[in-house]
């Protein structure tokens, strides 16, 4: 074992990179669930974002346009889900699962001619002055733009949900759609907007995989990241701040265990890989042990269909 082989600064920096896709997807899903909708199609939206972002970035040679396209791609797919569940009132769980399968198929169809192509490189942004700070500079301030954007999105979501009228309305729709409707809020429209936002975030997360983290297009490349994002939302008990914690925990464990292995430390890899899931289950148990708390956290109308006549 040689722990000195590990460059801890680079490890912490790559932890942020490894966590960004699931962070983006999870914060999007959090907003969707706060609005009372359970969209299990995160994986499908992510991979659709991964290919649409990749394709546009390759065609235009602009990673930025790629990310915009990824957000649009994810949002369009999400709106399909929105149309089915909000307008046609289909079952959200079944539709979400179908969305994942559909997204995986659609993306491999779209991606046929993009296998083996290199995407344009996304530049790193060294934040002036801060990047030169010892230790902190390497960890926090020498990343690509998307890492900062993902964190900004989380802060913005937290602020909007907590301190603004929009956030209040969104939460009202998620907690009690009948009451929100009685007050004159357009429940379906608000939910559709939340769903589109969730799709856009998932799309960004997917494009982060195909444009920066891997960077290439491979079929099925999200390989379950969308499901982890769903777990993180629960782990975070629907609080934006804890989504960062959850995403960095999941991402961190992956990177950490690879580093420890490369350094020759004999750790049982299986246990370390399991740990975030165990913690998620633990959080769920603790949450449900206290009934008043559960009521505070999970949106009361989560997964329930709304129709104005009911």
């Amino acid at each position: 074992m040689d722990l000195s082989a590990i460059n801890w600064l680079l490890l912490l920096a790559s932890l942020m990179v490894a966590s960004t896709p699931i962070l983006l997807a999870a914060i999007g899903e959090l907003v969707v669930e706060k609005a009372g909708v359970l969209n299990l199609g995160v994986e499908g939206m992510m991979i659709t974002g991964a290919i649409s972002g990749f394709a546009i970035a390759v065609e235009t040679q602009s990673p930025l346009l790629g990310f915009v396209a990824a957000a649009i791609g994810g949002a369009v797919l999400a709106l399909l889900f929105g149309f089915l569940t909000q307008v046609l009132l289909s079952n959200q769980v079944a539709t979400g699962l179908a969305l994942t399968l559909f997204g995986l198929g659609l993306s491999s169809l779209l991606g046929q001619s993009y296998i083996g192509i290199k995407p344009p490189l996304t530049g790193m942004i060294d934040i002036p002055f801060l990047a030169d700070l010892p230790i902190l500079g390497t960890i926090f301030f020498r990343h690509d733009l998307m890492v900062y954007i993902s964190l900004l999105i989380v802060v913005a979501v937290w602020f909007l949900l907590k301190y603004t009228r929009i956030g209040l309305i969104l939460r009202a729709v998620g907690e009690n759609h009948d009451a929100a409707h009685a007050l004159g809020y357009k429940v379906v429209r608000i939910r559709l907007m939340a769903i589109a936002f969730g799709g856009a975030c998932a799309g960004l997360g997917g494009a982060y995989l195909s444009l920066i983290r891997v960077p290439q297009w491979t079929e099925g490349m999200t390989a379950g990241a969308g499901w982890i994002a769903l777990a993180i939302v629960v782990f975070a008990s629907w609080k934006p701040g804890r989504v960062i914690l959850g995403a960095y925990l999941f991402g961190g464990v992956t990177v950490l265990q690879l580093n420890l292995q490369a350094a020759g430390l004999a750790i049982p890899v299986e246990y370390l890989s399991m740990s975030p899931y165990l913690i998620t289950i633990l959080v769920l148990v603790i949450m449900s042990a206290d009934r008043s708390r559960t009521a505070l956290n999970a949106p009361a109308c989560l997964g329930r269909s709304f129709h104005a006549s009911s």
Binding site: S14, A223, L258
Partner: peptide
Amino acid sequence: VWVYTWFDPAKEADAAKVLIEQ
């Protein structure tokens, strides 16, 4: 480095990065 998967591009990429860093 054991990644416990046959196919997971993100994880394979992370493993390659770690090895290069080391």
